[in-house]
Design a protein around this nucleic acid. Sequence first.
RNA 1: GCCGAAGUGGCGGAAUAGGCAGACGCGCACGACUCAAAAUCGUGUUCCCUCCGGGAAUGAGGGUUCGAUUCCCUCCUUCGGCACCA
Length: 873
Amino acid sequence: MVTKPVSKARKSAPVKRKPTEVGTTKDKDKSFSPQAFEPKWQKKWEADKLYRAVIDNSKPKHYALTMLPYPSGDLHIGHWYAMTPSDARARFKRMQGYNVMFPMGFDAFGLPAEGAAIKHNIHPKKWTYANIERMRTQMRSMGAMFDWEREAVSSDPEYYKWTQWFFIQLYKHGLAYRKKQAVDWCPKDNTTLAREQVKGEDRVCDRCGTPVIKKELDQWFFKATKYADELLRFEGIDWPEFIKTSQTNWIGRSEGASVNFRVESNQSTVDSDQSVQNTDDWSLITVFTTRPDTLWGATFMVMSPEHPLVDKITTAENAEAVRVYKAEAEKQTDIQREAKDKEKTGVFTGGYAINPVNEERIPIWVADYVLMSYGTGAIMAVPAHDERDFEFARKFGLKITPVIQADGMELNGETMTEAYAHDGVMINSGAFNGTRATNDKGMKNPAIKAVIEYLEQKGIGKRDVNYRYRDWLISRQRFWGAPIPMVYCETHGWNPVADDQLPVLLPDDITEWKPTGESPLKFHPTWKNATCPIGGEPAVRETDTMDTFMCSSWYHLRYLSPHDDNAPFDDAEYNYWMPVDTYTGGSEHANMHLLYFRFFHKALRDMGITEGGEPVMQLRNQGMVLAKDNSKMSKSKGNVIAPDVLVKKYGADTVRAYLMFFARWQQGAPWDSHGIEGTARWMRRVWTLFTDPSTALRSAQGELITASADVKKNLRRRVHQTLKRVTHDFENFEFNTIISSLMELLNEMYKAREAGAAGTPEWNEAVEIYLKMMAPIAPHIAEELWTNHLGKPYSIHQQKWPQVDEAAAREDSIEIPVQVNGKVRDRIVVAVDASEDEIRKAALASEVIQKYLEGKEPRKVIVAHGKLVSVVV
RNA sequence: GCCGAAGUGGCGGAAUAGGCAGACGCGCACGACUCAAAAUCGUGUUCCCUCCGGGAAUGAGGGUUCGAUUCCCUCCUUCGGCACCA
C-alpha cells in the first residue's frame, strides 16, 4: 500500500527499460504518502485563513452554497459526494478570479436527537453537539475550502433567536396563522407533518415511513398558498427541469370556474337574486369545475361527507342513510378512502339543486370520492365527460347527458360505455350548440372561455383557479426544535413574544421526552408560564416547536453574519453576496426545502426584509451513491461505505477524485470499491512524474534525448486542448470528464517525456497548467507538488486559472474519414484550413476509394467540413 | 392513469448545431520484472464469421437523411414526482 515504508516502495521502483532514467531514488520525499501531507496543508490553510471570504468590491463575487447536513453523527459517502465536487467547483471559480464564499453549517434541530435522548438518556443538545464536533473533524479531512468563520448551527440560541424573530415577522404580516383543521399526524414520530412531508400512494411519513393518520388539531401555518402563482414562475433562474416540473405538479394549478347552484329544499325558500359572492348562504352551493363548458351535462351534484351543508340539505326520509354513510366515511383512513381502484359509494340526500344554465332539477348525493380538502367540497357531476362521475352514475342509475361530441359521433347517454373526455363540438347546450371545445385547458379552450364569459355576465359563476398546494403546517409536537415564540392569555389571545425577550430558550433541565403526542415542553414544571405581552396577565407559552425546514429556509442568510446579535443578517454582507450563485444538493428536497425556501424568500421580500424574489440563481442536484446491488445504503443493511476508511487508505484527494470520476455527478451510480484503484493509480502516476528529479532523459549511450519541435508543439497543443475542455466541464458540472481528460493528458505527458520533452519550456508550462487544473480536485497533492517539490510560490490555491492559448490548441492537419455509401473505407490527412475542393480531390485520389468506385463516377460527394467525406455511388 | 428523466461492451461511462460509436477508467487475459507474490510497466479486450478480410451493433420497430446514439413517430423497460384534485 502507499503507506508502506519508503525503502520497499523504492526497491520496486520500475523503470528498467530506460537504464539511465531517474536520478537518485534515495530522496525520502519521493514516496507518495498523502496521509502525511494532507493534514499538514489543512492546518496551514486554516491558520493562514486562505479560504476566509470577506467583502471585496474589486472582485466579482460568487456565493457557492451546498446543502448543510443534519448532524447524525458520521459523515457518510453521500455527504462527500455532495460536498467535494461542489468544493472543487467553488475552488475553480475562485481561481477564475471570483471572490468565493463557500460556507458550511449544521441543520441541527430534529427528531433523531430525541430518539437518542430516549435511548441513551442523554440530552438532545449534548448528543447533537457531540456529533457536530465529530463531523467538523471529518469535514476538515475533506480538504474543502469551507469558511469556518461563517459556520452557522441552527440549534444555537444565537441562530434560533432569529428563526423565532422571522416567525413573529410572518405573524405580524398576516403570513402566519393558527387554525384548527384535520392535519396529517405521524403516529410513530408523534407529531403533525406538513403536506409535503407525507409521501407516496401509501401516505407515509417522509422521515420514518409510517402511514400517517388524520387528526383534528389547532396548528400554526404559514400562508404559502399566497405565493402559489409566483412559485410557478421560474423565469430568470437556472434550475433543473425536473425540479421545476416537480414543484409545478405539487402546486397543481387548475384553471376553471366556480359556479353557484341554487338548492331546492323543503326547509328554505330560494331567493333567485342571490349574488355570486353570497356563498355563505346554505341555499346556494358553489362548485369548482375545470370544465364549465360541460355545465349543461351536469345531471347531479355530489358533496363530500364532511361538507357543512349536507345535514341541511338532507331530507327527513334520507337522514338515517346519510348519517350512517358519514359515520362510515369518518371511520376509514385516508388511504382507504382515496384508493383509486375502490368502487364508488354514496347515498342520496333527498335534496335537489337547480342547474343554473338550463334550470334542470338535479339530485344531490353524498359520496366520499369528493374531498372536502379540495375546491369547495362539492362538485357538479358530468357523467358523460368525466370518468369518475360516469362510474357513479352507472352504479346508481343516474341520468347521463352528453354535451360534447366529436364530428360524426352520436353519443347516447343511455348506451355509452365510458365517459368521453376529448375535444368536439358542444351539443344539448342551448345557445352554445356548435361551439368547438378543444383539448386545451382553461381560457385557452374557446368553449370554456365562452361559457365563463356567459356565467360572469349572468352572475351565476366566475372564472376561478384552484391549487393542490396547501399552507405550510409548521407546528411540531417535539422538544428539539425552535420554540414557537407565541404566548396565549385568556384576555388577549395569542400574541408574539416581545423582540427583546428573544430567544425563547429551550430548557436544559428537562427529563421527560417520551413521545406522548404532545410537546415535551408542556410537561416542564415552569417553562410554559409567561406573562401576556399586551396586558401582563398570566399567560402560557406555545409548547410546540417549529418544523426544522423553517430553520433551513434562511440559513443561507445567516452565513452572511452568523454572530450578528442585532439582526438576522448584516445588510452590507447581504448586498454584496446575495443571491446565492450556485446551490448544490440532493433532489429529494424538490417539493420540501427547495419549495419552502423559495416561499420564504418571497415572504421576506414582501415584508421588506430582503430584495429579489429568488434566493438561488443556479441549482444543480447530485445523484445518489447506491450500494452495489442498486439499493440505498443504510446502516441497517450494513452496506454503508465509510469515507473515513477510504481516506485512511488512499488519502482525501483520491476519494475526492474518485467521487468525481466514477459516475455522472448529476446522476449517481452504485458504488464500486475496485474502481477507486484507478484514481489511486492516477494520483501515483502524477506524483511519480512530477517528483522525478531528473528533468531530462538520456539514451542508453548517455546522450541527452531532446524532443523534436513536433513533440513539443504537440505537447503544448494537448495541454491547451485539455485546459479548454476542463474549463468547460467545470463550468457545466461534468466532473467525470474532467478527470478523464486529465488522465489522458497525463498519458500524453508520459509519452512526451519518453520523447525527451522533459525540461523544455513546453514541458514546464505543461506541469504548471496540469497542477493548476488539478488543484480544485486534489488540493493537497497539487499544493505539495507545487510548493514543496517545484518550489513555486505558496499557495497554488491563490493562483489564477490559466488562459487557453487558442492558437496553440488548434490542430495543423486533421485526419478525415472517407465513407463510400455510408461506410468508412479510408482516411485522408489534410491541412486544417484545406478548402472543400481540396478535401474532395484528396478523398477521390485515394487508391482505396478508387477501388470501391470501380471506375464509376460517384453520384454525389458530400464534404462535411473538417469532419468527413461521404461518397455516394 | 398523468408529468418528468433515462436506456450505449462484463461494469461505471465517453461521443449529440446529425459526421470515425465505445474516449477515460474498472474488470479480465497475456507478457516483462520477481525465487515468489504485491506493486509497477507493456500488449490486448463490443459481438459474430470462412479471422486475409468482412459483417452486425447504441432498449424494440418504423421514418427523415448521402449519413442517426443524436431529429420525428409507435412501443417496451427502469427510476423519480403526482394521483378519485372535480
